[in-house]
């Protein structure tokens, strides 16, 4: 199996604070990888490394390598990189624009003007995000007028419209009700056929349901985040190598 993303001895500092220490991991292509672990263990920080959103935070320093398709990720222009690596945030954040304009936004900023093409992309992205049937008659409606779950699928459609190969999701269902969560999970499963997905989740059942691989992050009194264990999800959940992983997972399942 191909490795899509890889980090080698990756470290990240917020100013003087050592937030991630020596993270080495290989994230397989076209699979779902879940990042789990207690709050503050650096999952979101690690996720933002891949689309270089950490670059926007002042005082962030890193060392160690991050590769995408075996290419040094820090040598790629962040704007180009983010077109290849989409991101879905914890709280749905559609723009205060129409549904159509939300999805067309990415292609437009990359210079696509042809309205016919844009319409095609909007439709196919909304279909891929399992939202098309619910909104196809009302694409001019504001994205903010949708329900929370629909907004999150709109954000997924918006990310897909740029034709990325990787989608990063930071607790994408954290603010959603169980039915909306179910839809997002089904969608993640479908999307994993074509995309490499990395998802942060607090919900162990969710990690178990949606992911093929799981990375367990942990932090101690130093607050520095470390990767304790990375393996196939079924191994992490049934036969983890590290005691801390086992304790966390059994604790979370209660």
């Amino acid at each position: 199996m191909n490795t899509k993303l890889e980090t080698i001895e990756f470290n990240l500092y917020y100013g003087d604070f050592h937030a991630l220490k020596d993270i080495s991991v290989k994230i397989p292509e076209k699979r779902v990888t879940a990042l789990i672990g207690p709050s503050g263990s650096g999952k979101s920080t690690f996720l933002r490394t891949f689309n270089r959103m950490n670059d926007l935070i002042s005082g962030v320093r890193t060392h160690g390598d991050v590769l995408i398709d075996n290419v040094d990720l820090f040598k790629i222009d962040p704007v180009a990189l983010r077109q290849n690596i989409g991101m879905v945030f914890q709280k749905p954040n559609p723009f205060p624009k129409s549904i159509f304009e939300n999805v067309a936004y990415g292609p437009r900023v990359t210079g696509l003007r042809d309205h016919k093409k844009l319409e095609e992309i909007v439709e196919s992205s909304l279909r891929s995000a399992a939202l098309w049937d619910e909104v196809k008659d009302d694409l001019a409606k504001s994205g903010l007028a949708l329900s929370g779950g629909q907004q999150q699928r709109l954000c997924i459609a918006r990310a897909l419209a740029v034709q990325p190969t990787v989608i990063l999701m930071d607790e994408p269902a954290a603010s959603l009700d169980p039915i909306a969560t179910q839809k997002i999970e089904d969608l993640i499963h479908t999307l994993s056929e074509n995309y490499t997905i990395v998802i942060v989740t607090h919900n162990m059942q969710q990690a178990g349901r949606v992911s093929d691989y799981t990375a367990f992050f942990y932090t101690d009194d130093t607050r520095t985040g470390r990767l304790v264990e990375f393996d196939e999800t079924k191994i992490i959940f049934t036969n983890p190598a590290d005691k801390r992983t086992e304790d966390y997972i059994t604790g979370r399942f209660g």
């Binding site: 723009f95 900023v109 740029v162």
Partner: peptide, 11 residues
């Protein structure tokens, strides 16, 4: 969140 949404799309 609007700014990060936009930047994350490659704007």
């Amino acid at each position: 969140s609007y700014r990060s949404g936009s930047l994350a799309l490659g704007a």
